[in-house]
Measured scan of single mutants.
Amino acid sequence: EEPWTQNQQKLLELALQQYPRGSSDRWDKIARCVPSKSKEDCIARYKLLVE
């Protein structure tokens, strides 16, 4: 798996703010905001960050 770039991390953080918990299809929308990362990548990264 490719490491996360600073840019991808920033895009993930912005998308998390844009689509708060409870948004419909939240992770699909977030993944579309982060180039070359899947929905599963984004969820895994999020879990890593909040632990």
Rank of each mutant, 00 (worst) to 15 (best):
E1K: 15
E1N: 05
E1Y: 06
E1A: 01
E1T: 03
E2L: 01
E2D: 15
E2G: 05
P3C: 15
P3T: 15
P3V: 09
P3S: 15
P3N: 10
P3Q: 14
P3F: 15
P3L: 15
W4N: 02
W4I: 02
W4V: 01
W4A: 00
W4G: 02
W4Q: 00
W4E: 03
W4C: 02
T5Y: 05
T5F: 02
T5N: 11
T5E: 06
T5L: 03
T5C: 05
Q6L: 11
Q6N: 15
Q6V: 13
N7A: 10
N7I: 06
N7G: 12
N7Y: 10
N7V: 08
Q8D: 10
Q8W: 00
Q8I: 01
Q8G: 01
Q8N: 03
Q8S: 04
Q8L: 03
Q9G: 06
Q9I: 15
Q9R: 09
Q9F: 05
Q9N: 07
Q9H: 08
Q9Y: 02
K10G: 08
K10S: 08
K10H: 12
K10F: 09
L11G: 07
L11T: 11
L11H: 14
L11D: 07
L11M: 13
L11E: 08
L11P: 03
L12F: 05
L12Y: 00
L12W: 07
L12Q: 02
L12P: 01
L12K: 00
L12S: 01
L12A: 02
E13C: 08
E13H: 03
E13P: 01
E13F: 04
E13L: 09
L14A: 13
L14S: 14
L14E: 10
L14I: 12
L14C: 12
L14N: 15
A15P: 01
A15N: 00
A15V: 00
A15I: 00
A15M: 03
A15T: 00
L16M: 12
L16K: 02
L16D: 01
Q17L: 11
Q17F: 08
Q17D: 10
Q17P: 07
Q18S: 10
Q18H: 06
Q18K: 15
Q18T: 10
Q18W: 09
Q18P: 00
Q18M: 10
Y19R: 00
Y19M: 02
Y19E: 04
Y19K: 01
Y19P: 01
Y19D: 03
Y19G: 01
Y19F: 12
Y19N: 06
P20W: 03
P20T: 07
P20D: 08
P20M: 04
P20C: 04
P20E: 04
P20G: 07
P20N: 02
R21Y: 05
R21Q: 15
R21C: 07
R21V: 14
R21G: 13
R21I: 08
R21L: 10
R21W: 04
R21T: 11
R21N: 05
R21F: 11
G22L: 07
G22M: 11
G22Q: 09
G22W: 07
G22D: 12
S23Q: 15
S23G: 13
S23C: 08
S24M: 12
S24C: 12
S24I: 13
S24P: 14
S24H: 10
S24Y: 15
D25H: 15
D25K: 04
D25M: 09
D25C: 11
W27P: 02
W27Q: 03
W27Y: 01
W27A: 05
W27V: 02
W27T: 02
W27C: 01
D28M: 07
D28S: 13
D28G: 10
D28L: 08
D28V: 09
D28N: 12
D28W: 04
D28P: 05
D28I: 10
D28Q: 10
D28H: 05
K29A: 11
K29V: 03
K29G: 05
K29I: 03
K29W: 05
K29M: 13
K29S: 12
K29E: 13
K29D: 03
I30F: 00
I30S: 00
I30V: 10
A31T: 04
A31P: 02
A31W: 03
A31H: 04
A31Q: 11
A31Y: 02
A31V: 03
A31L: 01
R32Y: 11
R32L: 12
R32G: 13
R32D: 11
R32W: 06
R32Q: 14
R32P: 05
R32N: 14
C33Q: 10
C33I: 07
C33L: 13
C33E: 13
C33M: 09
C33T: 08
V34A: 00
V34D: 00
P35E: 09
P35C: 07
P35T: 07
P35V: 07
P35D: 08
P35G: 11
S36L: 12
S36T: 11
S36G: 14
S36E: 15
S36W: 07
S36I: 09
K37M: 08
K37I: 00
K37Q: 04
K37D: 00
K37T: 00
K37E: 00
K37L: 01
S38C: 06
S38E: 06
S38D: 04
S38I: 05
S38V: 03
S38A: 06
S38T: 14
S38R: 08
S38L: 03
S38K: 05
K39D: 02
K39C: 04
K39A: 09
K39P: 15
K39S: 11
K39N: 03
K39M: 05
K39H: 03
K39I: 04
E40G: 10
E40K: 08
E40C: 07
E40V: 08
E40F: 05
E40P: 08
D41I: 01
D41Q: 13
D41P: 00
D41C: 06
D41R: 02
D41F: 01
C42I: 06
C42M: 00
C42A: 02
C42N: 00
C42R: 00
C42D: 01
C42W: 01
C42L: 01
C42G: 02
I43R: 15
I43A: 09
I43N: 03
I43T: 03
I43L: 11
A44R: 12
A44F: 07
A44E: 12
A44W: 04
R45Y: 15
R45C: 04
R45A: 07
R45H: 11
R45T: 02
R45E: 04
R45V: 02
Y46S: 14
Y46N: 14
Y46V: 12
Y46L: 04
Y46I: 04
Y46C: 08
Y46T: 11
K47Y: 07
K47Q: 05
K47C: 15
K47A: 05
K47F: 08
K47I: 06
L48R: 12
L48A: 14
L48H: 09
L48V: 12
L48K: 10
L48W: 12
L48C: 14
L49S: 15
L49D: 11
L49Q: 12
L49A: 14
L49E: 11
V50W: 14
V50M: 11
V50D: 04
V50C: 13
V50Y: 09
V50E: 14
E51S: 04
E51T: 05
E51D: 09
